[in-house]
């Protein structure tokens, strides 16, 4: 699969997922927080029923960069941990798989709080 084809697929699928989220924001009374939660849970469900991985092979970052990918990673992590650690894996698998992104966000949040100060919104 050529890089060009991968990029087109990532752009289109990622863009379409964002359009779905935008439609939910604009046309329903769902708050953005609820929509994000729905996408993460949807990622877990898609992975559970075996749809996430084929989708990922097709669109790459088009599905893994949107929050669907966070759910996909959680589900994959828990699946692998159940195989290696059994019942304990149920508790360790999810967050372990999502640790890098979450920890990076936390540490950068702390660093930004040290460096930057809050600015007024501009109309």
């Amino acid at each position: 699969m050529s890089l060009f084809y991968e990029c087109v697929a990532a752009f289109c699928v990622g863009g379409l997922l964002c359009v779905v989220a935008q439609l939910l924001i604009d046309l329903t009374r769902l708050t953005p927080a609820r929509i994000l939660v729905s996408f993460v849970v949807a990622g877990v469900v898609l992975s559970a029923v075996g749809l996430y991985e084929p989708l990922y092979r097709f669109a790459g970052c088009g599905v893994s960069v949107p929050l669907l990918g966070f759910g996909g990673a959680l589900a994959r992590g828990v699946r692998e941990a159940v195989h290696t650690d059994g019942l304990l894996g149920v508790l360790t698998g999810g967050l372990s798989a999502a640790a890098a992104g979450t920890t990076a966000a936390m540490m950068l949040g702390l660093l930004c709080a040290l460096i930057f100060k809050s600015r007024p919104k501009r109309a």
């Binding site: 863009g15 935008q22 939910l24 949107p66 966070f70 992104g101 930004c112 100060k117």
Partner: peptide, 23 residues
């Protein structure tokens, strides 16, 4: 809108913005 909200960029912004704001 959702173009920055849904990708992991939105998650990062959601963590970093309250951190700066509540300093």
């Amino acid at each position: 809108g959702a173009g920055t909200l849904l990708p992991i960029t939105g998650f990062a912004n959601a963590v970093v913005s309250p951190a700066i704001d509540t300093k």
